[in-house]
Design a protein around this nucleic acid. Structure first.
Lengths: 129, 129
DNA sequence: CTACATGCAAAGAATTTGCAAATCA
DNA sequence: TGATTTGCAAATTCTTTGCATGTAG
């Protein structure tokens, strides 16, 4: 039988994710944890984030360098993000227009099993100053 | 003075890219070349693709594993793609609706220096069979 | 000629994995 | 106790770089 154990490490990870407004990389999350006195291995951070993403507890996306970014998932529905390149703050976007647009293209070109990725990166008001 | 030299390797790369309908990874492109008897180093493939992308001779995107994919760029304008997950075939999409949508969000949330990434992945008609 | 390109190997960086030791339930 | 989880280090991948050598112009 498979179950998820509530370990100190996992709690620490969830705690940090919940306190953050936006996306963070596994590496940065690990640094954040160790900097605050937590004893945790980088591999554990990766493994925990992966398991959390598998059950949709976190959103995952990749920045332009290909690095994975994670964020506590607020809504269970399909959505996209407006992400600050500087601080990682993210706004969830529900965009039925985009969904419709993608679906129409699917039909027009005969593509199936569609999946789309829409992320908008920019600099948020706070980071502009 | 800086100029781009027309070397055998570069020609080989351009030739392959031009013959392909879709995206290909640097690694796969290198394999393709060596398999066809070309003598070329992987580093050269990477360097050439990078220089080509800097002047927009190729489109670049990342697949879900974070690997970079390249494709001969047909149109000089900003656009997105409908990419086949299986064969890499890509259809260029001009989507003013999406551009508008992104711009409106920029304004609404005060984000600046926006950049968006919109890629649709699916299985093309040929690969469905 | 000579500035740029290439090849190779080494370096980097992010992520994953093997395995023994630690630990939640 | 017994199945998971952790830590560490080693292994994987993709990509970049250093440097001596090759070559297009």
């Amino acid at each position: 039988m498979q179950s998820v154990r509530v370990t100190k490490q996992r709690q620490a990870i969830e705690s940090v994710l919940d306190s953050l407004p936006g996306f963070i990389s596994a590496q940065a999350l690990h640094q954040h944890l160790t900097a605050n006195g937590e004893s945790i291995g980088l591999a554990t951070v990766y493994r925990t984030l992966q398991s959390m993403s598998e059950v949709n507890l976190v959103d995952v996306l990749r920045d332009q360098s290909g690095e994975m970014l994670f964020r506590a998932c607020k809504s269970k529905h399909h959505h996209h993000h407006l992400v600050c390149r500087s601080c990682g703050a993210a706004i969830e976007l529900q965009a039925s227009e985009v969904e419709t647009w993608a679906a129409q293209l699917a039909a027009r070109y005969g593509y199936q099993q569609l999946e789309h990725e829409v992320e908008i990166f920019g600099t948020c008001p706070k980071c502009i100053n």
